[in-house]
């Protein structure tokens, strides 16, 4: 297992595109959050200044998806998987090494990203009432956003293992994340349907973890929402693992 981890980590860090994408995550997250927060009217009271200070995640998650998908699909075009599975015929080892490598890499990018966004978002919303940094719900929102990014990355690993194609995998993940959200924006639906969609869509449910003002509109409790996303990620990983076991290389 140590060897496989060392090998997978080496694979990830020796492709410059992966490093740039990982670097883009904190950069985009911080910059975008600052822009969004600065664009809000200081006279209006934001419903949830903390969630707003972390809103760059809507865009920054693309970097997590891109790296996670690339780590898997780069095995298939061209077929590096032949070499990987020759080096480690135990496919569960390869699966675990890939999932852990992606988790570690996204964690390294998400920590500065989330903290940077929080600070940038708070200073951009000058004049509004902010929760103190020691506040429990604020800390939960911060930790939860980091976990959200990790779960999105693991969801991507699972889907990429199943479809084995970069465009198809990225498309599937993005449809799953943004599809229901766009539907709620574009379609006229009853509050009941709206809440149902929000409860079961991985992005909206997962980001419920960012709510710090009890009056929020999210139909799910913060950790429950993140658990919904975790269930999606676990399901995708299970499918990906099964197919990796069953299929010819």
């Amino acid at each position: 297992m140590t060897g496989a981890l060392h090998g997978e980590w080496t694979k990830l860090r020796t492709v410059p595109a992966n490093l740039w994408t990982l670097l883009a995550l904190p950069a985009v997250m911080t910059a975008l959050t600052a822009l969004i927060a600065a664009g809000t009217n200081p006279q209006e009271v934001s419903p949830d200044p903390t969630a707003l200070a972390l809103s760059g995640v809507y865009f920054a998650q693309l970097a997590a998806v891109a790296v996670a998908v690339a780590v898997v699909t780069s095995e298939y075009h061209p077929r590096l998987i032949l070499l990987t599975l020759s080096a480690s015929p135990r496919r569960t080892t390869v699966f675990t090494a890939k999932a852990l490598t992606v988790t570690a890499a996204v964690l390294l990018a998400a920590l500065p990203g989330v903290l940077g966004a929080l600070l940038a978002g708070r200073s951009a919303q000058h004049g509004t009432h902010q929760l103190p940094l020691s506040d429990g719900s604020l800390q939960r929102a911060v930790l939860g956003t980091v976990l959200y990014l990790l779960l999105v990355a693991l969801l991507s690993v699972g889907i990429a293992l199943a479809v084995r194609h970069t465009a198809a995998a990225t498309g599937t993940v993005l449809a799953l994340l943004y599809g229901p959200y766009l539907a709620t924006q574009l379609l006229n639906m009853s509050t009941h349907t709206l809440h149902l969609v929000q409860k079961f869509s991985p992005m909206t449910a997962g980001l419920a973890v960012q709510t710090t003002t009890g009056a929020g509109t999210a139909p799910l409790a913060p950790w429950t929402g993140l658990a919904v996303l975790a269930a999606y990620a676990a399901g995708a990983l299970a499918v990906g693992w099964t197919l990796l076991q069953r299929r010819d290389a």
Partner: peptide, 8 residues
Amino acid sequence: LWMAHYNG
């Protein structure tokens, strides 16, 4: 190098 690492 990555292949070498895989098998120590």
